[in-house]
């Protein structure tokens, strides 16, 4: 109850700030005759970046929500446990390998992971699945290969680091209790008051109309929940892209450790889709080492500004903070190892 009140207060605060900014902006537009000012140009730029993020992410989030809703209605805990290997390590490997054939980016994967965890998928494999899929899927690997035609090693390196990193992170967070890490607790209740357990407990009958209604109810409820965090994250990411000069960050990068840290920070702030980030990463090769560009390529799909807010909307605050720190540490270590082992171009 207490965390629910806190959550409501955070939502109220965020909503108030953004709505106040929007009201101010509308008054500014219509009151001051600013058609040709620099401010209007910048706000158009902000609007362009914000909506390009939303146009790109929203359909994938909807797809993820629909898949999640289908999981809620049709999949039982038994089914999940039946397909998972018994060995704990093999479960993580299995979860990472699903990513190879699952062409989903980081926006869609969070609602799907949340749906699987609600159905009893253990935390470790669920997080490994969530982190590996946006990196090791074939579309992302193909775009990485195309972006780095002069450095074809980058694609297998990205795949290997993403695969290994997701397994290591999954293992490190696997002690957490499955449903307890989900926001809303172990017995999630949707916006329409339906208690989500397995299908029998859920009260969704096999009647086609009832199943359709259940899927639509879940989709609506998930969209309300995940959608507002997506929008909040997109607004912040667009503001950062417009307001924070990246050359301040890139100016820092020089040494082995500093350049890896800078590229990880850039990946977090820019919030690029994992299918596109390789082309942007390529432009940094003249300023940064190959290892730091590799860090950019593995951190971005795992954690960025946009999906940080979606994670806070899906998982408990404590777990999300722990997960983010683990991701940053593991990715930094992987990039450092790549830098030390491979040297030369990647150093």
């Amino acid at each position: 109850m207490h965390s629910m009140t806190n959550n409501q207060n955070i939502q109220k605060g965020a909503a108030f700030l953004l709505i106040a900014a929007s009201v101010f902006w509308v008054g500014f537009c219509f009151g001051a005759g600013v058609s040709q000012t620099d401010i209007l140009r910048d706000m158009r730029g902000f609007s362009l970046v914000l909506w390009s993020i939303l146009f790109e992410a929203l359909p994938f989030v909807l797809l993820g929500i629909i898949v999640s809703s289908l999981i809620q209605v049709f999949v039982t805990e038994d089914m999940i446990l039946r397909i998972m290997p018994d060995n704990r390590f093999m479960r993580l490997v299995f979860a990472a390998m699903i990513g190879l054939i699952f062409p989903v980016c980081e926006c869609a994967i969070i609602p799907i992971t949340r749906g699987l965890m609600k159905k009893g998928m253990p935390v470790g494999p669920a997080i490994t699945f969530m982190l590996a899929t946006p990196i090791v899927n074939l579309i992302v690997l193909l775009s990485t290969y195309n972006a780095f035609t002069t450095m074809p090693q980058m694609m297998p390196l990205r795949a290997a680091c993403g695969f290994v990193g997701a397994i290591v992170i999954g293992a490190l967070v696997s002690r957490a209790q499955g449903k307890a890490v989900l926001k809303g607790g172990a017995e999630p209740v949707c916006a329409y008051g339906a208690h989500h357990g397995d299908e029998a407990q859920h009260g969704h009958s096999r009647n086609k109309r009832a199943i359709f209604r259940a899927v639509m109810q879940h989709t609506n409820a998930e969209l309300q929940s995940v959608g507002m965090y997506l929008i909040f994250g997109a607004v912040i990411a667009a503001a950062v892209q417009m307001a924070v000069p990246t050359d301040v960050l890139t100016g820092i990068g020089g040494g082995r450790i500093a350049s890896i840290a800078v590229m990880m920070a850039l990946a977090f702030l820019l919030s690029l889709c994992s299918e596109a980030d390789a082309f942007v990463a390529n432009t940094f090769l003249y300023q940064f080492s190959g290892a730091s560009v590799l860090a950019f390529l593995i951190v971005g799909p795992m954690i960025d500004l946009k999906n940080t807010f979606m994670m806070f909307g899906s998982f408990s605050k404590k777990f999300t903070i722990r997960l983010i720190l683990t991701i940053l540490l593991v990715c930094f270590a992987l990039a450092l190892v790549a830098s030390l082992l491979i040297g030369g171009m990647y150093g």
Binding site: A15, S22, Q224, G227, I231, F232
Partner: peptide, 10 residues
């Protein structure tokens, strides 16, 4: 939820 108003910002 108050956060629903965020949808109007973009």
């Amino acid at each position: 939820r108050p956060g629903m108003l965020l949808f109007f910002v973009p």
